[in-house]
Amino acid sequence: MSYDVLVAGETLIDFLPARPGPLSDVEGFERRPGGAPANVAVALSRLEAPPLFWTRVGDDPFGRFLEDTLLAEGIPGRYLERDPAAKTTLAFVTHDEGGDRTFSFYRDDTADTRLEAGTIGDDALESVSWVHAGGVSLAGGSSQEATLDLLERAAERDCTVSFDPNARPELWPDAGTFREVCRAALERVDVCKATVGELEALGFDGATPEALARDALEASGPHTVLVTRGREGAVAVAGDGSPWPGVADHGGYEVDVVDTTGAGDAFVAGSIAALREGRGLEDALSFASGVAATATTDAGAMAALPTRAAVDAFLADRR
């Protein structure tokens, strides 16, 4: 089987709380597979576009569980690495009553921080047309250099390169370092998906999501910026150098939200799938928003990711 997309980054264990509330008050958790790039990879597979996925987990029970999960989701094992000297990252999730979440990471020199530059050969990059990575891999260890190297080499080979800063302040020593490193990544990127808060943290300015996106286009590398706004939908701005120039705005879909964990990753996968299929910016935004909305109607980041059939049915009901 041939693969046209390569996703790179962390796979980890999310511990989901038994009930909403602060971490100090939660007594029980449920183990779920997670990690933003892992969610994107699995979401693409469920959308009938399985990618190559470069990740690294510990050679421990959690790591073996994650590897088995990815393989069962149709992700090829070619770049699923086990680290014999490091543990798998753990993240404890807390929810408020509206389903919004915060994370507490256990990620000190864990396996996903130890990706090594050059692991993905030129032959692999020449066989794909799209490469995607996220900001957590930039937050420490050799994975920072490895991710920047991958993005740069992918850009040199005319791959479409996408990036999600996925800001997790607790993983960065300070806001300035986050801004500096992620801005360096954006210089190698064609498509950036971010929230309003993430674009502001990256130093971009604008009174509206569209204005923020335009400032990011003018000040950094991407030719397309997708801005997610939670329940209010998303906006996309693509410059003249984009294959799909223009502006699109989608107001989102009304759903009964159970858990927003992974919704942004679902949106990323939906946008990659749609744009690769040749859809226009407005259609791609509608489809990606549908994938994200469907993903919020069940618990867990990866477990709630919808199939192509589920998304098509969801959108059909709203036409």
Rank of each mutant, 00 (worst) to 15 (best):
E200W: 14
D240C: 08
A211K: 14
W172V: 02
G141A: 06
C192E: 09
G141F: 10
E180R: 14
C192I: 11
L217G: 15
P169A: 09
A146V: 15
R214E: 11
A211H: 08
D158Q: 12
A133Q: 11
L186W: 02
E210S: 10
R231S: 09
V196Y: 03
S137Y: 12
D164I: 10
G203F: 08
D205I: 01
D149R: 08
E156C: 11
R153A: 10
S220P: 10
E170M: 11
R168H: 07
P165N: 04
V128D: 14
T177F: 12
T224I: 01
S220M: 05
A216S: 11
V196P: 03
C182L: 03
L217E: 13
A184C: 01
G206W: 11
D164W: 00
L212V: 09
E145S: 07
A154H: 08
T224V: 12
E187N: 08
L226M: 12
R183H: 11
S127T: 05
E156N: 12
G135N: 09
A194N: 02
V196W: 05
G135L: 09
L171S: 05
T208P: 09
E170C: 08
A139C: 01
G203N: 14
K193G: 02
L226R: 01
R214G: 01
A194P: 07
D240N: 06
G230C: 03
R214T: 04
G176V: 08
G239Y: 00
E187R: 15
R183P: 07
A236C: 15
P222E: 15
E218T: 13
T160A: 15
R153F: 13
A139H: 00
A216P: 05
R153D: 07
V237T: 10
G134F: 03
V136Q: 05
A133I: 13
R168M: 09
P222V: 02
E152S: 10
G134A: 08
T224H: 00
C182D: 11
V237G: 01
L171I: 04
L226H: 03
A201M: 08
L148W: 04
E198H: 11
R231D: 13
E187D: 14
G134P: 08
V128C: 11
S142C: 12
P173Y: 13
E198S: 13
P209T: 01
G197C: 12
D205F: 02
T228I: 00
F178M: 15
V227K: 01
R153N: 04
C182T: 11
L186R: 05
A234W: 14
D205Y: 05
P173R: 07
S162Y: 06
P169G: 13
A139K: 00
E200A: 15
L151P: 02
A139R: 00
T224F: 00
A238W: 00
R157N: 13
V136A: 05
C159K: 07
R188A: 08
C192Q: 12
L202Y: 06
A185T: 10
A139W: 00
V189H: 00
A201D: 05
D149Q: 10
E156T: 07
D205A: 09
G140Q: 09
